[in-house]
């Protein structure tokens, strides 16, 4: 594998977006790009990552390779990332380490790190990325982040309901309750403020607040978030990158007994 990001912070943002949700991950590299999925220790949150060749300045993968890494270690190396440097990932044919080369031609500087790869035994799950959903919402990730931060303070359970009138996020704590209603809008001056809802039926689902606090760490990937809800599947919270691919979080709901 030889894959070069023209801006090293792209990879840093991707890794930082889920490094607190899961401890380790297998990156599966093929000529169609880098794909990964990992489940958190409590098996409630599934992270999926897709970095297609379009995200790279140059991308080459001669034979399919799996790269297992501890995310805490990789995140430490990526602290060196900045917008002036490129980052090339190298993995040899017989992979036992990942080489990261940061280059800042303007500053005549380069940095090289090596990360030991780890054997991770993890089942790949059959996840249909085009899964049908009853409700799809596209909204500002900044707005979503603020709403999650405000409401999750009040309760460890977070409810989302969507009707024709809009999307309602609500919490019911022991001493306080809160509710945020967001209605569809079109902001011609700033398209990232738009909120759109498409739905075939209403939904009303509850999730554990702590996972939503993990998910919003990915908001730096995109100023938009796509939400997909159905009665009978985990919710999908998806951040898509400008150049294709992105990071998705499938979150299993809580059900009333």
């Amino acid at each position: 594998l030889e894959a070069k990001f023209d801006d090293s912070t792209i990879f840093k943002k991707i890794i930082d977006s889920f490094k607190d949700s899961v401890t380790q991950i297998n990156f599966v590299c093929s000529e169609s790009g880098i794909e990964a999925q990992a489940i958190d220790d409590s098996r409630v949150l599934l992270v999926t990552v897709s970095i297609p060749p379009s995200c790279f300045e140059s991308y080459r993968c001669d034979r399919p390779t799996t790269i297992g890494v501890y995310l805490a270690s990789l995140a430490k190396l990526l602290k060196s990332a900045n917008t002036n440097s490129s980052l090339t990932l190298y993995v040899a044919d017989k992979p036992d380490e990942l080489l990261l080369l940061f280059e800042e031609p303007k500053n005549q500087k380069s940095m090289e790190y090596k990360l030991k790869l780890v054997d991770i035994t993890a089942d790949m799950l059959e996840v249909d990325s085009d899964m049908k959903s009853d409700v799809t919402v596209e909204m500002s990730s900044v707005e979503f982040t603020k709403t999650v931060r405000d409401l999750t303070q009040l309760s460890d359970s977070f409810t989302v309901s969507v009707t024709k009138d809009g999307i309602v996020f609500s919490v019911q704590g022991d001493t306080a309750q809160g509710k945020v209603l967001l209605q569809p809008r079109e902001d011609l001056a700033d398209e990232s403020n738009n909120l759109s809802i498409s739905m075939s039926k209403t939904i009303d689902l509850s999730f554990a607040s702590k996972y939503l606090l993990d998910i919003i760490k990915a908001a730096s990937i995109s100023n938009k978030i796509f939400l997909k809800f159905s009665d009978d599947t985990p919710a999908l919270f998806e951040f898509k990158m400008e150049k294709g691919g992105g990071v998705g979080f499938y979150l299993a709901p809580k059900y009333d007994d």
Binding site: V44, E126, V127, D232, T233, P234, Y250, A252, K254
Partner: peptide, 14 residues
């Protein structure tokens, strides 16, 4: 009372 579902309840292993 509510119970937390698991990802494995919904997705099967490839």
């Amino acid at each position: 009372k509510s119970s937390q579902r698991s990802i494995g309840d919904f997705f099967s292993v490839k």
